[in-house]
């Protein structure tokens, strides 16, 4: 009697705790994902009053033949390409610093990773104000110290807009790779460095031949996560350079894939085309995503 009733209470427990989760995920994630896939083969456009028609893969073909699509895609990879090296360099520097022993290290660490925890739209706003051409603090600072002779419009040229997007993205996210690299550094045994010192390796050689090789796995995780974050950049661009809070046109010079997708669906109301774009983006980030999920999955389920 006893084992039977226990089995029963176990099944009941599993159903009660997992049913709401499975239901939510099925209804709000996987069903819409399939629905979007279905819509990507229609010409649904909310501006035009007509029942949507099946048009096969036309949307995909249209996007792949569209110059704007390639421009936006290239820009997204440019943002990733500018952000990742900058971010890794900043993170590695700060991690090396925080790995030193000194009084006050805890406080410095706490303050150094603050920007990561603030809302992305606020970060974009902060920097937009800092870089403001007329009253911005950067101009004020550089002018006061005689580094510029007149105020600059930092966000005027299209190329500098992209550069600042990468810098602000770096500012928003560098804390994550810093923490990962710091944890990696702290797991390197001290005697490795001591014996290298005895062998006469200077500080630079020790970083080059001990620290960096041993940190490669940490760099790997950080790069994967930060690739996804930079590739899907949205909030920061919105308030820094998108220049479109009240339904106006979107700044074309910093339009990355996610902003383009938002524009297609929610501004232009070309639902079918936008749906196709979302699946092209999915395919582009799939490779990196699979690596990430396998790692998390292995840790969560298989190590028991």
């Amino acid at each position: 009697m006893k084992p039977f009733s226990r089995l029963n209470s176990d099944s009941l427990y599993i159903i009660v705790v997992l049913a709401p989760i499975v239901l939510l995920i099925a209804l709000f994630i996987y069903y819409p994902a399939l629905d979007t896939l279905g819509q990507s083969t229609t010409n649904r456009n909310l501006r035009i009053r007509r029942p949507p028609k099946q048009i096969g893969l036309d949307n995909y073909v249209k996007l792949l033949e569209d110059d704007e699509f390639w421009e936006v895609t290239g820009r997204s990879f440019l943002v990733v390409g500018l952000t990742l090296p900058l971010e890794m360099a900043v993170a590695f520097g700060i991690a090396l610093l925080l790995n030193q022993r000194f009084p006050g290290r805890g406080v410095v660490r706490t303050l150094a990773i603050l920007p990561w925890m603030l809302p992305g739209v606020v970060n974009g706003f902060l920097w937009g104000w800092l870089l403001n051409g007329e009253y911005g603090a950067l101009n004020g600072f550089l002018y006061q110290f005689g580094l510029i002779s007149e105020y600059q419009y930092w966000l005027r040229a299209p190329e500098s807009q992209i550069l600042w997007v990468a810098i602000v993205q770096t500012w928003t996210r560098y804390a994550f790779p810093t923490i990962i690299l710091l944890a990696g550094l702290q797991s390197i045994p001290d005697d490795l460095f001591d014996s290298a010192k005895v062998d006469g390796a200077n500080a630079l050689a020790r970083v080059r031949f001990i620290t960096i090789p041993l940190l490669l796995p940490s760099f790997g995780i950080a790069l994967v996560v930060e690739f996804i974050a930079a590739f899907q950049i949205f909030d920061v661009v919105w308030t820094l350079t998108a220049g479109s809070s009240a339904g106006g046109a979107m700044n074309p010079f910093t339009k990355t894939l996610m902003l383009y997708n938002y524009e297609l669906v929610f501004r232009d109301l070309r639902v079918g085309l936008g749906a196709a774009l979302s699946y092209i983006i999915l395919l582009m980030s799939l490779a990196v995503g699979v690596i990430f999920v396998m790692r998390v999955y292995n840790q969560g389920v298989q190590e028991a």
Binding site: I25, F28, I29, Y30, Y31, P32, A33, L34, D35, T36, L37, Q39, I228, Q232, M258, N261, V265, V271, G274, A275, S278, Y279, I281, L282, S285, L286, V288, G289, V290, F292, V293, V296
Partner: peptide, 13 residues
């Protein structure tokens, strides 16, 4: 869900 670019679901959602 973690690596899924959220747009895929958001449009139909």
């Amino acid at each position: 869900m973690l690596p899924l670019p959220i747009w895929v679901s958001l449009i139909a959602l």
